[in-house]
């Protein structure tokens, strides 16, 4: 979807992407554009450096929930705070995927993971963090939305949101991010279809979809 949007907006030759540490760690092999590999959690800072050197180019970070909502919280909040004209694609699958299914800040209460084997306990480590709502409160944010991949209509809305995010960057309005609820069958211990269903049954009630900020 991200690649389709970059092509449709005709900005491919002036766009770079940043792959995080996480499931998308090899993204530099999948986007035929200038690409960076960033240290875990630091993609928004790397994007800031790139954008300050080339303000008329475009940059996106493609980050998972461990990368963005845990180790990289300061970087994403501060990038939004500064109104960096960058776009972040935030994949929320409520778990650390690449490393084998550990609990993430977005793991739901009661959700079993390899580091919350009895289910996430609110008293022990709090309730999941809602990044879209949080970042929408920051004035530097110009477009913040949350979408999901579980149904065809949601897929269509996700692509529209990604396009809107890049358009926000092109129009230099400020920071843009699309949080995308995504399946992780492997680590959720579900079939792909069950995982998609679980997004609808469990994730969306806690992570409401919609546009939280639009300038």
């Amino acid at each position: 979807m991200v690649a389709e949007v970059i092509e449709e907006l005709g900005i491919r030759e002036k766009t770079a992407g940043i792959a995080p540490v996480g499931c998308a760690v090899f993204a530099y092999n999948y986007f035929d554009i200038d690409m960076y590999e960033a240290a875990h959690g630091r993609a928004p800072a790397v994007a800031t450096g790139y954008k300050r050197v080339q303000p008329d180019h475009y940059i996106f970070t493609y980050q998972g929930d461990g990368d963005l909502a845990s180790i990289g919280t300061a970087e994403i909040v501060q990038a939004a705070h500064r109104g960096e004209k960058i776009t972040t694609i935030f994949i929320n699958n409520a778990i650390y995927g690449m490393t084998g299914g550990q609990m993430a800040p977005t793991t739901l209460v009661g959700q079993k993971t390899t580091t919350s084997p009895l289910g996430r306990d609110k008293e022990h480590c709090g309730e999941p963090i809602r990044m879209a709502e949080m970042l929408a409160t920051i004035s530097g944010s110009a477009f913040i939305a949350r979408c999901a991949l579980n149904t065809t209509p949601n897929l269509i809305k996700t692509k529209q949101a990604i396009k809107k995010a890049f358009e926000t960057q092109i129009a230099r309005k400020g920071f843009s991010m699309v949080e995308i609820l995504s399946p992780c069958p492997t680590n959720w211990g579900k079939s792909p279809a069950e995982a998609m269903d679980w997004i609808g049954e469990a994730m969306i009630p806690y992570y409401p979809l919609g546009v939280f900020k639009e300038v």
């Binding site: 065809t152 069958p185 079939s191 792909p192 279809a193 998609m196």
Partner: peptide, 8 residues
């Protein structure tokens, strides 16, 4: 073989 296309 994830079957998501069949589901969709």
């Amino acid at each position: 073989g994830c079957g998501l296309c069949v589901r969709a």
